[in-house]
Design a protein around this nucleic acid. Structure first.
Lengths: 146, 146
DNA sequence: GTGAATTGAGTTGTGCGCAATCTAATTGTG
DNA sequence: CACAATTAGATTGCGCACAACTCAATTCAC
């Protein structure tokens, strides 16, 4: 038998599959809101505090302008956000919520419940998973820089 | 304070971030092999057993023909696989490894070690994370069907 | 056996995700 | 002040993901 790595032994593939499965569970709910999953993430950040610059959104989500610029244009076309050049620093673009964008927050409150219901894990297991994932992500990011 | 869901409370976002961070850690090694992460996953499946049909690869990885067809054409252009119509059932396309494809397995053996080294988790924690993720993925898939 | 239904791949279109590059605005240095 | 370096955002290009659709091969029902 070869010593080639086996698919099902790879934590990386387990992460990849779980992440895809989780967004698939969210998809029907998000469809009814007219959002994709990354668009939903951007709205989550803005619901916490706005306006935010493109840079701030990118830092919160780990996305660069190549991803965010067109995504934000689509959110603007949906009437959920507005993009305005900052006056203090004309390089910056502040992303503001519109009234429609703020109102969407109500409909989105039910979204994360779906995952908890479908997860088949106890609250304690979910919470432990969450904290392990956060530590893993932080460690991988710092390893990546070296 | 609003009851809008908070980004950092979402397990789904933790999965999404961890998955991206893990593939980012793999990227430099895979670059040196000339593979993307999904291409590496396909090669992993083929190193275990070949030939495999497009359908079988899709079942193993959770990908459909819309993703796999062009990906397999790129692997074929790289000289790593060959696509041959099955004789028993002309609808099927069997994916065979070339000699170059088989040889790549050696260079890839070091890939998963990178994650373990960078993870910052004990072997026990990694193993528990792995099993939790597999149960989560299974539960999410079965929830998705209903 | 023939037509309907199913199955296996491929194609098209949309939206990420990320590297690389570009431009304009700002900051830092002499 | 001038000019190099940095920063913010946008653009381009490529490769997934995934839905929707097409087409051909096979199977199923009668």
């Amino acid at each position: 038998m070869s010593d080639a790595p086996r698919l099902n032994h790879q934590v990386c593939f387990a992460l990849y599959s779980a992440s895809k499965a989780a967004t698939a569970v969210y998809r029907p709910v998000l469809d009814s809101l007219g959002l994709t999953y990354p668009q939903y993430l951007v709205m989550l950040v803005l619901w916490e505090e706005e306006p935010r610059t493109v840079r701030e959104l990118g830092a919160a989500l780990g996305l660069d302008s190549g991803t965010l610029s067109p995504l934000l244009k689509r959110l603007e076309a949906l009437g959920l956000v507005e993009r305005r050049r900052s006056q203090e620093d004309e390089r910056r673009v502040d992303i503001h919520l519109t009234d429609a964008g703020r109102e969407l927050s109500g409909g989105a409150a039910a979204v994360p419940k779906r995952l908890a219901d479908a997860a088949g894990l106890s609250a304690a297991e979910l919470s432990q998973l969450h904290s392990t994932l956060q530590r893993l992500t932080a460690a991988l990011h710092s390893a990546d820089k070296q």
